[in-house]
């Protein structure tokens, strides 16, 4: 465990917990894409199939349980909680899961480290994670008005991506057999998707104005 990996995990954890806490406290999910949240729940469910078969560390197991629990809680709040679901921008959040899930599944069947159920699902989760933010970015574009917490949520996710890339670079040079092409390429694609958002986020922060995305 290096400092970049830890910082990446912590910003990832914070992004999910900030969102869950926001929804729980103000009983609103305005500006949050349910499609993206459902895709993340699917990402964690398919990636952590090894949770009971491969023990890595107590840290690893606990983090997996927190990610699974918090992502499914967010989906539950947005779909089932009678106050929260009323604030959901259903008409604006029109991205189809199918268009992201199917190509990722096909890609995972072709490109994986080993053709086993667990490895195909692992690859699928990496590909899906790379693009799962798209419905959220589309929703941000449409609603224009981005409150601080939604902005912070996407910012923390972007920070997590950046730290993970530093972690891979660090591990590449410090661990002799550390080569994971699938992880790196899908991770890089995911980070690039945030670059555009970051540009506007930093501009609004620098000029101390409310975040607005262009049409």
């Amino acid at each position: 465990m290096n400092i970049f990996r830890l910082a990446g995990d912590m910003t990832h954890l914070m992004s999910v917990l900030v969102l869950l806490l926001k929804i729980h406290t103000i009983k609103s999910c305005a500006g949050i894409s349910l499609k993206t949240q459902e895709l993340y729940a699917l990402v964690f469910a398919t990636r952590y199939l090894d949770i009971f078969t491969d023990f890595i560390s107590v840290y690893n197991t606990i983090m997996k349980l927190i990610f699974l629990g918090s992502s499914f809680s967010i989906v539950w709040y947005m779909r089932r909680h009678k106050l929260v679901r009323r604030s959901y921008d259903k008409e604006q959040d029109t991205f189809r899961h199918f268009f992201l899930v199917l190509p990722c599944l096909l890609l995972a069947l072709v490109m994986n480290e080993k053709f086993t159920f667990k490895e195909v699902m692992w690859a699928f989760s990496l590909y899906l994670e790379a693009v799962a933010i798209l419905p959220q970015l589309v929703l941000l574009q449409r609603t224009k008005n981005i409150d601080n917490l939604t902005g912070q949520y996407v910012f923390l996710l972007g920070a997590y991506r950046a730290f993970y890339i530093f972690n891979w670079i660090y591990r590449y040079f410090t661990e002799p057999h550390y080569v994971h092409w699938i992880t790196w390429i899908s991770g890089l694609v995911q980070t690039l998707l945030y670059a555009d958002f970051f540009y506007y986020y930093f501009n609004s922060w620098k000029n101390n104005v409310k975040l607005h995305l262009p049409a």
Binding site: R47, D50, D54, I56, K64, F67, Y164, T183
Partner: peptide
């Protein structure tokens, strides 16, 4: 590290 690859990242 072992030869059997395990995914140790989240």
């Amino acid at each position: 590290s072992s030869t059997e690859k395990v995914h140790d990242e989240l």
